[in-house]
């Protein structure tokens, strides 16, 4: 089950990469398009896939639980199995066409590696979140509903609320608020990370000192990666914690 779906996923990214390069004929434009794909699709696929996998293998999991194996290693094993195979599909699926296109001779290689790294982080984060949702909801329909809602919230609604807040409180100094707001959402965080590479000229146009420190130095890059790591570690810890307590 797992392997078949990761092939589909792999084929999808392979196709996407080839089509993008074929249509655009320009590596830097393709990277921009890819960014949109990565910050929208990768979390969606990670979420759906995680929930689906958990529910599908639930009976097998219960069988495994009867064996003398540590609970945390069963669930962590399942999580890592899904998350890593998805990440591999992403990296190989997008990487192969770009490598053939001549990525190594191009200046876009750093932008591209950054894309893949954030994509991998997003896969890890959203699969973990999906496992959390599935662990907490016995009802499959409910579980799927919550998972989709989570994705919708983080990908779209959050930004809407964020924008409203910024406009509503525009008379106050907002640069700290906006940076913190970004930190709290992994999708926004990944987007900002990529923006640091792609749109640095525009971002430096803003006067705030906090912004300048964040975008003008490698400080921003480091903080973002630390935050992303926290975003992976927290849900994974909750999987371990929850799986120990849960009745089956």
């Amino acid at each position: 089950m797992r392997s078949r779906w990761s092939y589909v996923y792999f084929a999808f990214y392979l196709l996407l990469g080839v089509v993008l390069l074929f249509l655009n004929n320009d590596l830097s434009k393709a990277v921009i398009t890819l960014m949109n794909v990565i910050i929208v699709l990768v979390p969606l696929i990670g979420t759906i896939f995680g929930v689906m996998y958990y529910y599908n293998s639930q009976e097998f999991t219960e069988l495994l639980l009867a064996q003398p194996i540590k609970r945390s290693s069963i669930f962590l094993g399942q999580y890592l199995g899904v998350a890593l195979s998805l990440s591999m599909s992403l990296i190989l699926g997008l990487g192969i066409p770009f490598v053939f296109y001549g990525l190594f001779e191009s200046s876009a290689i750093w932008d591209f590696s950054l894309l893949l790294i954030t994509g991998t982080f997003l896969t890890l984060i959203f699969t973990a979140l999906a496992f959390n949702i599935a662990l907490s909801n016995e009802n499959k329909i409910k579980g799927f509903g919550y998972a989709i809602l989570l994705w919708l919230f983080l990908a779209v609604i959050y930004d809407g609320l964020f924008l409203m807040t910024l406009i509503l409180f525009e008379d106050y100094p907002l640069d700290k608020v906006s940076l913190i707001g970004t930190m709290l959402n992994p999708i926004d965080l990944s987007r900002t990370l990529i923006l640091l590479k792609l749109d640095i000229s525009a971002l430096l146009g803003y006067t705030g000192a906090v912004f300048k420190q964040f975008f003008g130095t490698s400080f921003g890059l480091i903080v973002s990666f630390v935050m992303l790591t926290i975003w992976v570690v927290m849900p994974v810890l909750r999987i371990v914690f929850k799986s120990k307590k849960k009745d089956f």
């Binding site: 960014m35 949109n36 910050i39 929208v40 990908a155 779209v156 609604i157 930004d159 809407g160 964020f162 924008l163 910024l166 406009i167 525009e170 907002l174 640069d175 608020v177 906006s178 940076l179 707001g181 970004t182 926004d188 987007r191 900002t192 923006l195 792609l198 749109d199 525009a202 971002l203 146009g205 803003y206 006067t207 705030g208 912004f211």
Partner: peptide
């Protein structure tokens, strides 16, 4: 236009909501 009014919103550049 929004960025002109509230410069901090630049942080939402290329977000899906902004595209919408």
């Amino acid at each position: 236009y929004i960025v002109n009014r509230t410069p901090e919103t630049i942080i939402l550049l290329r977000s899906m909501f902004i595209d919408i």
